[in-house]
């Protein structure tokens, strides 16, 4: 399972945890998140996320 980070605001999407409050189940892989999904904190597009090797502090 990987983690992805919003490059604009730093929000982290963790595939293992998903985003149940957004209707995204735990374990949902990044590529399965719809392309029109946007950052829950700052609203930028899915394209503005990048993979992070380790969860940032």
């Amino acid at each position: 399972m990987k983690t992805w980070q919003c490059v604009v605001c730093g929000f982290i999407y963790d595939e293992a945890k998903g985003l149940p409050e957004d209707g995204i189940q735990a374990g949902t892989r990044w590529e399965d998140i719809p392309a029109d999904w946007s950052c829950p904190d700052c609203g930028v597009a899915k394209a503005d996320f990048e993979m992070v090797e380790a969860v940032a502090a």
Binding site: G43, V44, D48
Partner: peptide, 23 residues
């Protein structure tokens, strides 16, 4: 309307107009 301002400077090449930026 709620929108992400940073997208204003990279929405054109991505083919998004003002209506798609507003969420």
């Amino acid at each position: 309307s709620s929108y992400s301002k940073p997208m204003l400077s990279n929405a054109l090449a991505a083919g998004k107009g003002a209506a798609q930026i507003a969420n």
